[in-house]
């Protein structure tokens, strides 16, 4: 059958990364809010999950995100010294330093797992960060091929 001009079959969609962001309530979430109220345009690939503090982000959350379809994970919170709870981000930092090496050994490297400090005043930094992370993950491609941490679909 000849293909007509009016075919409604959708074109194969380009890869759109799904990125899960775990952010703290007081700095990065407020930074993201500022990016929004400042009408900054940035990639729409990030799904933000707000938590009280980066210290609340259990490494299990990251594994759960990858398990359920995230192509990348971003963890972001207050700059050192700025934590609303004085030391939550310091606790988190030490945890991530170790955990990222463990994940790297199992094949989840720097192109899938991102960390940042974004303050409530850094709306522009947040927008740039999202764009940059999205571009990197787009380049890295979908996280699905064969990984033991992924839920079989």
């Amino acid at each position: 059958m000849m293909k007509t001009e009016t075919s409604t079959a959708p074109a194969p969609a380009a890869f759109e990364p799904r990125i899960t962001a775990f952010v703290c309530n007081w700095c990065t979430y407020a930074g993201a809010d500022l990016a929004g109220t400042s009408r900054l345009q940035y990639a729409s690939n990030m799904r933000i999950i707000k938590l009280p503090c980066t210290g609340r982000i259990d490494p299990l959350f990251v594994l759960k995100a990858f398990e359920n379809g995230a192509d990348a994970v971003l963890v972001s919170g207050c700059h050192p010294g700025d934590c609303h709870y004085t030391s939550g981000n310091y606790h988190a930092r030490r945890r991530w330093t170790l955990f990222r090496k463990l994940l790297a050994l199992t094949g989840i490297g720097d192109d899938r797992l991102f960390f940042s400090w974004v303050s409530a005043a850094e709306g522009q930094k947040f927008a740039d960060l999202v764009n940059d992370v999205t571009a990197k993950v787009r380049k890295a491609g979908p996280f699905c091929a064969v990984h033991p941490g992924r839920r079989a679909s």
């Binding site: 490494p59 299990l60 594994l63 759960k64 398990e67 170790l98 955990f99 463990l102 994940l103 199992t106 990984h147 033991p148 941490g149 992924r150 839920r151 079989a152």
Partner: peptide, 13 residues
């Protein structure tokens, strides 16, 4: 798969 992975990774962590 994923349960085994998460278990061993978290046990080590």
């Amino acid at each position: 798969g994923h349960g085994n992975y998460t278990w061993s990774v978290m046990r080590a962590f």
